[in-house]
């Protein structure tokens, strides 16, 4: 039951709301980047790596959201 609720919430949150390739690529790249950052030993380097992941994601989606 819990699994079903979580699945439903994830879908409703739009995380897997049938993304088309380009921006889905941004999301996938963010997930991959987070995974790599999580493996960094040092807390501060790990935190900085996570921030870099988020900056890369915003760079990735920027042309679609604010580009003309």
């Amino acid at each position: 039951m819990v699994k079903k609720i979580v699945l439903t919430l994830v879908v409703l949150s739009g995380v897997v709301a049938v993304p088309r390739p380009a921006m889905a690529g941004c999301t996938t790249a963010l997930a991959d980047c987070y995974t790599a950052a999580a493996k960094v030993d040092s807390f501060w380097y790990r935190w900085a790596s996570g921030l870099d992941c988020e900056l890369d994601f915003t760079d990735c989606v920027r042309s679609k959201l604010t580009g003309r």
Binding site: S13, V18, P19, R20, M23, L65
Partner: peptide, 18 residues
């Protein structure tokens, strides 16, 4: 459109493009 859809669209439908 909902922000979640906007973020995951290849060619997002923006209310204001310019």
């Amino acid at each position: 459109i909902a922000p979640e859809i906007l973020l995951t669209s290849d060619n997002p439908a923006r209310p204001v493009r310019d």
